[in-house]
Amino acid sequence: MQSLEITNLNVNIDGQPILKDFSLNIPKGEIHALMGPNGTGKSTLAKVIAGHEDYEVTSGEILLNGESILGKEPDEISLAGLFLAFQYPLEIPGVSIANFIRAAKQARLPENESINAVEYYKELYDKMDALKIDRKFTARSLNEGFSGGEKKRCEVLQMSMLEPDYCIMDETDSGLDIDALKIVADGVNLMRSPERGFLIITHYQRLLDYIIPDVVHVMYDGKIVHSGDAELAKELESKGYDWVKDSFVSSLAQ
């Protein structure tokens, strides 16, 4: 059961259904891309999986390696092996990157154990170098005054430091120029492993030129309407989302 498995998930916001019988299974070792127009429920899905309490889950199940994570606290879900790279990473004034990641790493150790500072900084610096993040950033307040690209690289840095089983990346590519996009993609590709699954949520195909997905899903109006291989992303890019609507949605409705 080494997978992130979502089954018939129904989620409301203010009584309004957003996710409708949504199902998706991501086995370890695979990268799945989830594409779709704005407002179709992609970010809602990401936040519900991560345990955000503002959403009303009316039915369904989310299993992480066979264990239900639905209804658990966000920190428990994180410790169970999930990582969500935010579409809009929050600025945390006065909390440095180094202290923030350190607190997250500390949470993964038994209570009477503390982090080896030397090893921690070595790992942090190595991974910052790989992501081309200036080492001076360790002392800066998390995301405060960062450019869009710096924020997204910092998300990937956190992801690589915390080594989750499953990574959800919510529009990590939005707002990135091509250089930043390549750096982020390199970071993800380095983490690619038979022991790790990815869900890459994106509006555009561009990122998928650099991170080649195993499966591409097209989401529309709260559910997946079509799935295919990496070619599907390209087809979607050239034909547009109207093609999805015309080809898959209307047929579903009938």
């Binding site: 991560a50 345990g51 955000h52 606290e73 966000p74 920190d75 879900i77 994180s78 410790l79 990582f83 969500l84 935010f86 990473p89 929050l90 600025e91 945390i92 004034p93 006065g94 909390v95 202290n99 923030f100 990641i101 607190a103 997250a104 500390q106 949470a107 993964r108 307040s141 956190q158 915390l162």
Partner: peptide, 30 residues
């Protein structure tokens, strides 16, 4: 305390208590 900031920190596995401490300490850091 900003609930979104708190959710962000919790989503990294940082326990609620530690997250609150970091936010309050961070508030004073300047």
């Amino acid at each position: 305390i900003d609930e979104d900031e708190l959710f962000y920190m919790l989503s990294r596995g940082i326990p609620h208590r530690v997250a609150m401490q970091l936010i309050v300490l961070g508030f004073f850091e300047e």
